[in-house]
Design a protein around this nucleic acid. Sequence first.
DNA 1: CATGAATGAGTCTTCATTCAT
DNA 2: TATGAATGAAGACTCATTCAT
Lengths: 197, 197, 197, 197
Amino acid sequence: MPRVTEEHRTARRDQILSAAMRCVARDGFHKMTMANVIAESGLSAGAVYGYFKGKNDLIQAIARRAVGGFAADLDTLADGDDQVTLPGALEVVLARARGLTADSEGGLPRIAIHAWSEAARDDEVKEIVRTNIDSIIKSWARVLARARADGNLGPDGDLDQMARSMYSLMIGFALQGLILDDVDEESYLAGFTALLA
Amino acid sequence: MPRVTEEHRTARRDQILSAAMRCVARDGFHKMTMANVIAESGLSAGAVYGYFKGKNDLIQAIARRAVGGFAADLDTLADGDDQVTLPGALEVVLARARGLTADSEGGLPRIAIHAWSEAARDDEVKEIVRTNIDSIIKSWARVLARARADGNLGPDGDLDQMARSMYSLMIGFALQGLILDDVDEESYLAGFTALLA
Amino acid sequence: MPRVTEEHRTARRDQILSAAMRCVARDGFHKMTMANVIAESGLSAGAVYGYFKGKNDLIQAIARRAVGGFAADLDTLADGDDQVTLPGALEVVLARARGLTADSEGGLPRIAIHAWSEAARDDEVKEIVRTNIDSIIKSWARVLARARADGNLGPDGDLDQMARSMYSLMIGFALQGLILDDVDEESYLAGFTALLA
Amino acid sequence: MPRVTEEHRTARRDQILSAAMRCVARDGFHKMTMANVIAESGLSAGAVYGYFKGKNDLIQAIARRAVGGFAADLDTLADGDDQVTLPGALEVVLARARGLTADSEGGLPRIAIHAWSEAARDDEVKEIVRTNIDSIIKSWARVLARARADGNLGPDGDLDQMARSMYSLMIGFALQGLILDDVDEESYLAGFTALLA
DNA sequence: CATGAATGAGTCTTCATTCAT
DNA sequence: TATGAATGAAGACTCATTCAT
């Protein structure tokens, strides 16, 4: 029978996590210091450590949240009533990515890139990212199946293999958007559409 | 200053850089310690600092080397005599990426991912990566122009915009290859080819 | 204030003290954390602080209980009807020490050693230990007086001075029993008896 | 080919160790802070960590030095030309203990008590202390053998068992000397001698 | 009274960099 | 020019204690 409600705990955890994500977006995982997170969260050191076992635990929570949510729209597309085309589906996803970039938490795509980097050296983060990529590719495969059913995709080709290319197109946009100055959905989509033609 | 000395300097610098790249491939930029680099290079602290101003300088040199070299083959393709198709061009690049992964320096693609992450928080590295992406996209645009000239690509579409998708397909492969277990050039290419159909 | 409440208070205090002694036996005074004591006692932080002013207060209570009780049998011996010999008296005390080692509270001798160590740096604990040693030596002196009266000890020698050696023999056994593997009462007593011969 | 001589390293290590022993004598193992040791040694944090892996390593080195040296005289006695009696041997050892108490490093007996306490909770320190006790008991057994050969000890009794009592008498003196105010070699020896009579 | 979340000063440890030899 | 011992600021984490509920 907790003295403090479960909601309160969740809210506090979220408060810390959001603060930490702002730090990571600004500094990356390894230049994010616990002191910064503590200051940014407005709590005390002890409080933060009451909600997260340590910096590693926090990093994993951040990675989980950062890579999730990119592909939320894909399942909606696959299950929706509208005609599904590849450029149309990609457009929806890119729009989401754009939105996340301007997010209050400081840019999920940016954090996602840090998560990939961390996944390249830490097995626990790697597992988080792997699971996420798998899930997104599965979603893309469903979208492609739907496009094929709608007659907007040729009958040949393994959907999972094709989904990997769609995943690449999606994250490639996120990366280019962060590094280059002149990347916008419209021209990126135009390029992809022209390629398909 | 005699020429041998200059060669000696270059060799030494390379020796340090190679050691540092092994460290980064293993640990990432921020868990790479100068002590590790010093030990791995077999030189002394003072020596390393004689060739690189500091850790930042070293990081930038690593980033430069890591992101370079991915697209060396693209210009060859554009200038060569063989017919150029998109899947064919992508195949060449993926094969190169595969080769680099098993490199003695510990995997350039891995380091490249660390470089993107670092670019997201450090403007000097960002500039290095930006220049590199620009250059690769330019090369892809040349390849696409050649493919169009060869009649293997439709007449419509802005080549630079299309090149961005090709860049995405290329780096998406590198990322998936690092995180997922079952990524191979053949199936990835098959997916891309099916998409084009 | 009703009597039951007072009993309740005493029981609670004891509950905390026992929990704390298990912690000290396991971890020593300084690696014993209040959090551990709180968890081990099954009470809340506030409750524990209601019974003990703080960690120091708890440490002193533990020290008091740990060093007491070692020599309870000595007075019984001095006042009893049986013939008193030195090996016989020592045997009784060693048996008690053995028993305490296996105690539910985790080994009083072990805690006593921690108390000596603490006495070497904290004057309040030092006073507790000093009082206890004085008292045990006094008891030994009474036992020696009785042995002399029984004709089992020569007529010469200051009893208080001799008592100090008996104290040493007693605690030396406790210490050796904790550190060495092959210490048993029988052989230790045999050694002492042979020395006297 | 070290740039700095081995002697220099040894001297530095000793400088740190001595500083640390003063800290332990004053504060005990767990209230000894690395910051104190660093300040007391006059070196920097990094330097200290260059000579000791960490606090644990330092604790073990302190424990090793503190418990050693107590019994150095015993072997000399056993191998010497003078008649050996038990009170005579004990006197030599007590005199040494007295001397160490006033030592520049702050009192080896005091630190030894801390070491026993630590041995009760840390297996590595326990092993150090165990080895030391074993060795002292062995030395006492040699002294007793010599006393017996000299006709100053009865022919019966296992020497190793008797040696344990001698060890107890020795450390009991050290402990009492630290806690009680009125302990001096003379009266302690008188008590022991009277006991033997 | 009881609770246990929150506090924040204090610990140990690392590591980029320098500079006397 | 080369060395590597030394520096010390900065980082992650702990834990005795309090106090709002």
